[in-house]
Nucleic acid binder design. Structure first.
Lengths: 158, 158
DNA sequence: CAAATAGTTTAGCCTCGGCTAACAAATATT
DNA sequence: AATATTTGTTAGCCGAGGCTAAACTATTTG
């Protein structure tokens, strides 16, 4: 092996950014994100089912598939999971329905989603962009931040 | 089967929320989120490696494991992937380094992260919460929104 | 310098969330 | 009513991202 190895730099000039958080706190941040990821998809499905029921009166697997840009097989499998989790009831070739628990989840998600979306719009983000960003952000916004966003939106009516 | 089946409601009273977006747009929203998810973890690793290098002078697998609250085996596997993607160089039992591409990614991620974090603080979110939220949000904020966040932060200095 | 400890890798397992292909059931069309 | 179309399910595949256990390498310490 060569002696001219690439060497780590000294703890070095901080040109940007904050200090590293203490290990445990840092770890908790990542854990929080990982946990969010686990529930995220479930919530998206439930929320969408709720929206379809509300706006269309029914929620069919095919609609979910096309709106999520996912195969029907994937939706079918997912519905089985939602069923096992006690979030939806389903009978083949019939519309899906949300259980009580499902309805709660849908409402909560919808509410978070709306707060984030309206906040982004109040901030001045274009509608299309706001929708995309809101879809991704909604699962990662804490209650604290959500409350602040809501207040902001209210005091910055267009 | 019973005749008293649970029936879909009529297109119904909208108590809250916006109308459903057209199918194709809706689909693009979900696709965007799914794509973000694919790169998210990669970016988190690269960003963390960059931070460790900058603040500590070296980035060891063990540090990454404890800061991400993940097993060393998981980190080891991930490093192989990062290697294949041409983002890091590694030699067994030595510090990791970022390739040119890796450095670019790390800088970009770091920058996004900082913008979001400072924005949240400027909004009035407590530091600990802001850090957690920023970690989750950073991958889902479009350039457009990012620019707006930056302007907001600048004009709302504490 | 030998032994203990710390760091890293590999093997093998698991779950999730995608996919396609094949089939089955319901609905629509002719 | 027969056929075509749409809708839904099942089986089986894949990659990602976790895990534990076991083996191996490096470093530290007695």
């Amino acid at each position: 092996m060569s002696d001219h190895e690439q060497q780590p730099l000294p703890p070095t000039s901080r040109l940007s950014g904050d200090a590293l958080p203490p290990v445990e706190q840092h770890a908790r941040q990542y854990e929080t994100v990982r946990n969010a990821h686990e529930t995220e998809l479930i919530e998206d499905y439930v929320e969408l089912i709720g929206d379809l029921l509300r706006h269309r009166g029914e929620a069919r697997a095919a609609d979910i598939a096309s709106r999520m840009a996912v195969s029907q097989a994937t939706v079918s499998k997912m519905i089985r999971r939602l069923n096992e989790l006690g979030l939806v009831t389903s009978r083949p070739y019939r519309s899906l329905f949300l259980t009580e628990a499902g309805q709660n989840m849908a409402e909560t998600s919808r509410a978070r989603h709306d707060v984030v979306l309206h906040f982004l719009r109040a901030l001045g983000v274009r509608d299309t962009t706001a929708r995309i960003d809101a879809e991704g952000m909604e699962h990662h916004v804490s209650d604290e931040t959500l409350a602040i966003m809501q207040r902001f939106t209210e005091t910055h009516q267009t």
